[in-house]
Write a protein that binds this DNA or RNA. Structure first.
Length: 273
DNA sequence: ATGGCAGCGTCACGCTGA
């Protein structure tokens, strides 16, 4: 099973690029962030024509997440509110959607950016991450293997930033954000990309401004996290830089994980014997 | 220290993102 994540910065503006990428890469599941469209205007048909079912949680102009799947998708859950009745206003912005695919809980997140360390939005980001931690505790009780993907708006380590000396401590690289993310991951979730690649220089986002793409000044802020039973099945995880080089690109590019899932029945039988 | 680029909503430019 191949699962991908891509912040497309408007699914309508990027529709042709997303369709082309789906046809080329053929993931089983593609999770989108920043769809920036109200549900009634979501371009379902373009994806259905390619054999992908759609699960969406959108709003006008900002945020918005979607899951596209060519495998059967069950039990779609929208917002923190689906598992946390007391999530309240933290569930208002459309940043959380999940679905069960082949017995895997695919959780698609668009973590708030936070704007700057002195902004109210920064406090909201930390609050939101703390709510996510509680949400995952509730999810764990359901006992489904978890594949948590999305735009985390955090570079977890120095090797995830093009200029760690200058950027560490600032927005998306502050200790409070990083430690909130570590709390979310706990002992349960591992970064799929880092199972296969230890070096710096692998980015998923390049600022539109100041020639960041041309100078390869990027960050790795789009991640795929796996619970243990899935991590054991991971056979590769790559960042596909290609779409960032498109004409009129998103500022993010897709991240893809390959899983040998469901596990081979024969192996299970061997284990059992 | 600041703005730079892009999308949206609604039609001139402010808000938001990262």
């Amino acid at each position: 099973m191949r699962i991908a994540t891509w912040n497309v910065n408007s699914v309508r503006t990027r529709l042709d690029q997303v369709v082309a990428w789906l046809q080329h890469d053929q993931p089983d599941v593609l999770c989108l962030q920043e769809t920036k469209v109200a549900d009634e205007l979501f371009p379902h048909a373009a994806f259905q024509e390619l054999g992908y079912a759609t699960a969406i949680s959108g709003q006008k102009a900002y945020n918005g997440v979607a899951i596209l799947s060519r495998l059967p998708m069950e039990d779609v859950q929208i917002g923190f509110g689906a598992l946390l009745p007391d999530a309240g206003a933290l569930s208002d912005q459309k940043r959380v959607i999940s679905a069960l695919v082949e017995g895997v809980r695919v959780l698609n997140l668009y973590v708030p950016n936070g704007s700057s360390l002195t902004s109210d939005k920064y406090g909201y980001k930390l609050e939101w991450l703390s709510c996510l931690k509680r949400y995952l505790e509730a999810q764990e009780e359901q006992a489904d293997p978890l594949c948590m993907v999305g735009d985390f708006n955090i570079g977890p380590e120095a090797r995830d930033l093009y200029d760690p000396e200058r950027l560490t401590g600032g927005i998306m690289a502050s200790e409070a954000e990083r430690s909130a993310l570590r709390e979310v991951l706990g002992e349960r979730l591992v970064d799929a990309f880092r199972l296969f690649e230890q070096e710096a220089g692998h980015w998923s986002w390049w600022d539109y401004r100041t020639g960041a793409w041309d100078n390869d000044r990027g960050w790795r802020i789009d991640h795929i996290y796996l619970s243990e039973e899935l991590a054991e099945c991971a056979t590769g995880c790559v960042i596909d830089r290609g779409p960032r080089g498109n004409v009129q690109p998103s500022d993010h590019t897709p991240v893809v994980v390959n899983l040998a899932w469901p596990p081979d029945d024969g192996e299970e039988a061997d284990d059992w014997l």
